[in-house]
Simulated scan of single mutants.
Amino acid sequence: PRAGDPARLPGPRRSGAPAGPHQPEGANAPTPEEARAIASWDRDLDALEGELRRARAAVREVELPSALSASQLMRLAADEQGFVRDLARPMPRPPQPAARQGTRFHAWVESRFDELPLPLLDLLDPATELPGSDQEVADEADLDALKAAFERSEYAERTPYRMEAPVQLTLAGRVIRGRIDAVYKNPDGSYEVVDWKTGRTTQADPLQLAVYRLAWAEATGTPLDRVSAAFLHVRSGRVIRPRDLPGRARLERILQGETGTDGDAQADG
């Protein structure tokens, strides 16, 4: 083989064919079936070599889509290279039973307040992530446990102003879409945006709340400092309200390649 090329695998010898440098000419010639197998191996090796060379290319131009979901924006901010690799070579997503159970939890919470008005904006399309799509709910028993945990939370008796409200905003020339789990209106006219988390950890990206907070503020014409945001970690009942959430200017810098939210998190309860 040439220098730098993958070695070619030798074809299998016929059963009983002598080995060694003195075997008669043609004694090791492959059968037609063996020749086809060897040619198939060569094609596979060439394809793998080409894939490796493309993967090791120093520069690849990958254009960001004109519209992103809130979760895609978080992925971009957390791991730009990984996000770009996924765009360049998208992989099919396996079925997610836990996500379906998470969606059922969201539907159950919404059903508790079924007299609420329709969402403020009807912007949901097939590309927008569904409520509960990033959640971890194992089975019916786990779903029942989550319902009981929510009933113990501080939001159990608070009536939301809106639920499952689809929102969008334009940042750095790209449309960001998402769906807010719940919005509460305070007596003084300010708002609180809340995202339910049903996972087993209290790790959540404040960037998600920053996007939802800004989207709600701009959609309703509310000053940004009159919109707060919180995660409710349903299993533990813990409420986390991140401080110093980025506004429009900082979110646009993040989208343009400056990562991080520079925010601290404060837990209540």
Rank of each mutant, 00 (worst) to 15 (best):
R250W: 13
A145N: 03
V59M: 07
S66L: 15
R8V: 10
D142M: 02
A7Y: 09
R250K: 11
E129A: 08
R250C: 07
S69L: 04
A70L: 00
A219Y: 02
L64V: 09
P223A: 03
R89K: 08
G50M: 13
Q96F: 06
D268T: 12
L52T: 09
A35K: 12
A107I: 05
G178T: 01
T261P: 02
V109M: 08
V234C: 00
A229L: 04
A27N: 05
E110Q: 13
P90Q: 03
P94S: 01
D42A: 05
P12L: 07
K185L: 15
G247R: 12
R238T: 12
D79V: 01
E252V: 01
L169T: 01
L224C: 04
K147Y: 08
A77R: 03
G26I: 03
R112N: 14
G247S: 12
Q135K: 14
A249D: 06
R43N: 07
E218A: 02
T259C: 07
R75P: 00
A55G: 06
P97Y: 10
T31M: 00
N186D: 12
G199H: 10
A27Q: 13
G263A: 15
R43C: 14
E154G: 14
E154A: 14
M91T: 09
A182F: 07
S69M: 11
V167G: 14
D195P: 06
L130V: 14
D134T: 15
R235V: 03
E218S: 04
V227Q: 00
R179M: 08
R54Q: 10
A19K: 12
E164W: 04
A145Y: 01
L207Q: 08
A99K: 01
A172Q: 00
P206Y: 04
V167E: 04
P160G: 07
A265I: 11
I180E: 09
A37C: 08
G263P: 03
V239Y: 06
G50E: 15
A88R: 03
E164D: 08
S228Q: 00
R158Y: 07
D195I: 02
D79E: 14
P18L: 15
L143M: 04
V137K: 03
L143K: 00
F113Y: 14
L87C: 02
A165T: 11
D225R: 02
R14W: 07
L207H: 01
L48W: 05
Q208N: 00
D205T: 07
E33I: 12
A265C: 08
A107Q: 10
E154S: 13
G237Y: 08
L68M: 08
K147A: 13
R248E: 10
L68Q: 05
E34Q: 15
L123Q: 07
A39W: 02
K185M: 15
E34V: 12
Q168K: 11
Q168T: 02
E218I: 02
D46C: 00
Q208C: 01
D142Y: 00
L143G: 04
G173M: 06
A230S: 08
R54C: 10
P119N: 01
L209P: 04
A27V: 12
R104K: 13
G16S: 09
D188N: 13
H22A: 15
Y155D: 06
R253Q: 08
Q203E: 12
D264N: 09
E252N: 10
T170Q: 11
R248M: 13
G221C: 11
A47N: 03
W41Q: 10
L76F: 09
R200E: 09
N186P: 10
L64S: 10
P206R: 03
P206L: 00
A99D: 06
G269M: 11
I38C: 10
A138C: 05
A249H: 05
